[in-house]
Design a protein around this nucleic acid. Structure first.
Lengths: 217, 217
DNA sequence: GCGACTTTGTTCCTGCGTTCACAAGCGGCT
DNA sequence: AGCCGCTTGTGAACGCAGGAACAAAGTCGC
């Protein structure tokens, strides 16, 4: 378990959270941090945190803790964001507009290499210094800027077609905000974020709380 | 296992997906659907789907499948969205603006009962027919409209304070888009959506793919 | 009315993720 | 220099989720 071997999926998600907390600490001038303190700040169990970090061939010092700077660097490298990674964003509607202007991407290791929309009326529009391009330019941008990640923020109907174009252009990871199931080749990763699903999960728990109260009454 | 007993967390998330697919089918005039067909449309295994549905005290007909309308109704009830559920949205910035205008909320069982922002310059602004209110009005709106869910789309610094106000007003479920860990009482549920984390997870897999290729070369 | 076919609901089993608990290691203090 | 206390890293147990396979149940054709 010395080198970054077979990091579990669940751990990867948490590493990203640790990274954000560590960056904040770093900015605050904190030099070292214990697993207990970092776990609290990240909202997880300290044992879990230590096991997570152990997958990176851990760099902690017993009796002291972790060097914030070193740990931050180590996680960045593991996640592949030590250098800025280029992404393209397709679908400049309501949500796409917000994503294009979201500062968190840049500060957390990503660079928006291109904005695309199928609507000719939108092409040419300027958003935070980036020009919206037509779909025809996608191939060129992806190749030239070595883009590996595509973000889909189109309506559900267009999602699969956009996805196919992204894959054809050479993108191998997709973040999908459209409420649609995407079909992709095996070598392409897809993650889906569905805002309504998140709310429905919360709604379920509300339902359960209400049912429990009814019994109590 | 006859009545909606102890539905696993992972199942709840998928039920929401099934619900969306079923709604589409319903609109398309489909009357019955087999577990195989529904599973394909939802992008999951058919055995998993059947097990998920069995938690609702399943209503399928052997040799035929499920009645689309009945199943949709059943899942809606389980998720607590058979009647529209009221939510409030706090933080009308880049992202909040997009969320306020997102049509998917209404169509999937939610009603935005109020928009709030701390910035007095934003208060009074009209977004898709809803007026932005000041934080002072929150208590009244939550009480009057029986709001149980709050959505936080503020900067990270303001998230905890907003969260506290929501909880004090009576909200018991929170969907948090701010990159911050929220501390809440035990009876309050929190779900977090962090866009940068999603990208970093994809980035990790890209990193691995690249490493694998390097070895191959 | 009966048999064959289809599809569900469930059971068992395997694997992953989480948690607990403890031994090992390092720094600081005397 | 040696001991003590603190913190890490890991081994083992536990619980949950996922997948395959099968028996029960209902429909359709004859």
């Amino acid at each position: 378990m010395s080198e970054g071997r077979a990091v579990p999926e669940a751990t990867v998600a948490r590493l990203a959270v640790y990274l954000r907390v560590l960056s904040t600490m770093c900015d605050g001038g904190v030099l070292t941090v214990s697993s207990e303190a970092l776990a609290n700040a990240a909202g997880v169990n300290s044992a879990k945190l230590r096991k997570d970090l152990s997958y990176l061939g851990s760099i902690g010092t017993r009796g002291v803790g972790y060097l914030v700077e070193v740990l931050r660097e180590r996680i960045s490298t593991c996640l592949g964001v030590s250098e800025h990674r280029a992404v393209v964003l397709v679908g400049i509607g309501n949500l796409g507009h917000a994503l294009a202007g979201y500062g968190g991407f840049r500060s957390r290791g990503f660079r928006i290499a291109g904005l695309f929309d199928a609507d000719p009326n939108r092409v040419g529009e300027d958003i935070c210094g980036l020009r919206v391009r037509g779909m025809a330019d996608m191939q060129a941008v992806v190749t030239r800027e070595s883009v590996s990640i595509g973000v889909i923020a189109t309506p559900a109907e267009a999602a699969q077609e956009v996805c196919d174009r992204l894959v054809a252009a050479g993108v191998t990871s997709i973040l999908n905000f459209a409420p649609a199931v995407l079909v992709v080749p095996d070598n392409v990763d897809v993650r889906k974020v569905d805002l309504a699903v998140e709310l429905q999960i919360l709604s379920f728990h509300e339902q359960r709380k209400a049912a429990g109260l009814t019994v109590v009454l």
